[in-house]
Amino acid sequence: MIEQNSAPPANALRPVGGAARCAIVALALAGAAWVARAVWHIRLAVAGQPASGPPDQGDGVHRPPNALEDSYHVVTSVGGAVTAVCVIVFLLWLDRMRDNAKALSGTDPRYGYSWLWVGWILPVVNLWIPRGIVADVHRSVFPERRLPAVVNWWWGLWLAGLAGGVGIIYSDDTDEVIARAYSGVLPLLGADLVIVAAAGAAALMIHTLTTAQQEHVAGQGY
């Protein structure tokens, strides 16, 4: 059982409501960006591959993109920018939640501050450390409660998105994804759906954990 402090200093608690709202809005925009990608995947599949072949002709040769392919490049670039902003806003929210959890519980976080940032990009450990950081935020304040199921839903969908071949991190460049849309669009649409669902689960998780922490603070009269 983690021992709770009776009353942390008022200036030790950081406001999280605004950060949570910003993160939820950013996730909604990221989800919309991936919905747009799915729409363009369908448009490419319906249009079919041009007679000139895929954009990547092989041996380093690329033909000029047609109007639809060119617009897909724009959609993916905008989506990538929105996703990058979403990641930053999410981590800023999580940083505030971690600081409050430390003040409320009187215990240091299980993972050091550097893991908040590098835990997402280091191979292998990025399969569990980010979830561990989020879980620690809740469990350190509410050791007697079960972890909300939405945390596991979010993490499972996130990992599925990473493994989907066209998820948040993928090896294919845009022209290769276009060629995949021409030859078989269903796997692309499945990956799009998983990522949109992960964004929705992340938004619900943020709301759930933030509300619990705010209610605890209010209930204790801090």
Rank of each mutant, 00 (worst) to 15 (best):
T83F: 12
L188T: 10
D59Q: 14
G60Y: 09
L29P: 05
S52Y: 08
H138K: 07
G112I: 08
D95C: 00
G119L: 06
S183N: 14
A160P: 14
V82W: 14
G190L: 07
K102G: 05
A30D: 09
G156F: 14
L186V: 13
P9E: 11
V177Y: 13
R146P: 02
G161L: 11
G184M: 15
D70G: 10
A45Y: 09
V75G: 09
A202Y: 09
A36P: 00
V87G: 05
L116M: 08
G80W: 12
P143W: 14
A36R: 02
P15L: 08
T76Y: 12
A20C: 10
I133R: 10
V118F: 12
A45F: 13
P54G: 08
N152L: 08
S71N: 05
A212Y: 03
G219Q: 10
G31K: 10
R37K: 08
W93M: 08
A32E: 05
W40Y: 07
D136Q: 09
L162I: 02
W128K: 01
L159S: 00
A28K: 07
G58F: 01
Q220W: 13
I88M: 05
A38M: 15
R146H: 06
L162V: 09
Q57K: 13
R131C: 02
G119R: 03
A33W: 04
P109V: 03
A45H: 12
G161P: 03
N5C: 01
G106C: 02
Y113M: 11
Q214Y: 09
A20M: 15
M1Y: 06
L94W: 09
W120P: 15
L189C: 03
V166L: 04
G156L: 12
D99P: 00
G221R: 01
L29R: 06
G221V: 02
E3H: 14
Y72V: 10
Q57E: 15
I129E: 07
G219M: 14
E215S: 11
S71F: 01
W155N: 14
I121T: 15
D70E: 05
A47P: 06
V85T: 11
E176D: 05
R110T: 09
T211R: 06
T208V: 06
Q57W: 04
G53L: 13
L147H: 00
L189W: 01
Y111D: 05
C22I: 11
W93G: 03
A197Q: 13
S6C: 00
S105G: 07
G132Q: 05
R14Y: 15
W155Q: 11
